[in-house]
C-alpha cells in the first residue's frame, strides 16, 4: 500500500487540564474512511481538532503525505474541517456564504454553484440571510463546500447531526464519491451510517481514566 496520507504516533492531548487522548497512533490512507466512535467525552472532537492544528497537542511523529511536518498547520490548507459550529455567517446570504467559503481557498471553484444549490435543496434561498435558515439548512450550507474544495482529507465532526434523511443520503454519496476518487475521510457520528464497497475502518475511543 502507498504511503499513508496522515501518520501520527504518540499523540497526547488535554481538555481542560485532563488528559483525553493518551499515546495514540493513527494512520489514514488515501481512499480510506475512518470512523471515530465512542461515548461522549471520549475525545473524538479533541482528537479531530488536534489533527487540524486547532488544539495544543504533542506527538512523537507527525507525517503528512509521507513528509515529516512539525505542525498540523503546515497541511491545514489541504484538509477541510467542519466542526460542531456551523462556521456559517449569519449576516451573509447563502450565496455570499458560499462565496466566502470558496474564497478561503484560491483553488476552489464555484462553477457548479446552481447545481450545488439544487443538491443541497437550497435553490431559491440564495439571497436569504443565513440567520433565517434552520439548523439543518445551515449545516447543508457548511457542508456544501465539500463539493468545491480541493482538499485531500475531510475531517467531519458529527456531520450527520441535524440533517434529514435525504441530507444524510446526500452526504453519504458525497463521501463515497470522494473516497473512490482517492480522498480520505475522518468523521465521527453516533448514527448508523454505512458505506458499502468502501475501505471503511472504525476506531472505538474510550473515556480516559474510566478503565482505572
Amino acid at each position: 500500500m502507498a504511503d499513508p496520507l496522515l501518520n501520527i504516533a504518540g499523540l497526547n492531548c488535554e481538555r481542560g487540564g485532563d488528559p483525553v487522548v493518551v499515546n495514540m497512533s493513527l494512520q489514514l490512507h488515501p481512499g480510506e474512511i475512518l470512523h471515530l466512535a465512542g461515548p461522549n467525552g471520549a475525545g473524538k472532537t479533541t482528537l479531530m481538532r488536534a489533527l487540524c492544528g486547532l488544539l495544543y497537542a504533542d506527538y512523537s511523529r507527525l507525517e503528512w503525505n509521507g513528509m515529516q511536518v512539525s505542525s498540523a498547520l503546515e497541511y491545514a490548507d489541504e484538509l477541510l474541517y467542519i466542526g460542531h459550529r456551523s462556521s456559517v455567517r449569519d449576516r451573509l446570504t447563502v450565496h455570499e456564504n458560499l462565496q466566502w467559503l470558496a474564497s478561503l481557498n484560491p483553488a476552489a471553484s464555484l462553477e457548479l454553484l446552481p447545481d450545488l444549490l439544487q443538491q443541497i435543496k437550497l435553490a431559491g434561498y440564495e439571497d436569504e440571510l443565513a440567520s433565517s435558515l434552520s439548523a439543518g439548512q445551515k449545516r447543508r450550507v457548511a457542508l456544501a463546500r465539500l463539493q468545491f474544495s480541493p482538499a485531500l482529507l475531510w475531517v467531519l465532526d458529527e456531520p450527520f447531526a441535524s440533517l434529514d434523511v435525504e441530507g444524510v443520503e446526500l452526504l453519504q454519496q458525497w463521501i463515497t464519491r470522494f473516497v473512490n476518487e482517492g480522498g480520505s475521510v475522518l468523521y465521527s457520528t453516533h448514527q448508523r451510517v454505512d458505506f458499502p464497497g468502501c475501505h471503511y475502518r472504525r476506531i472505538d475511543m474510550q473515556v480516559q481514566g474510566e478503565a482505572a
Binding site: L54, D77, Y81, G83, S87, D90, L104
Partner: peptide
C-alpha cells in the same frame, strides 16, 4: 461561531 478557525485553516 467557528468562523475564525476556518480562516486559520
Amino acid at each position: 461561531q467557528g468562523v475564525l478557525e476556518q480562516m486559520e485553516l
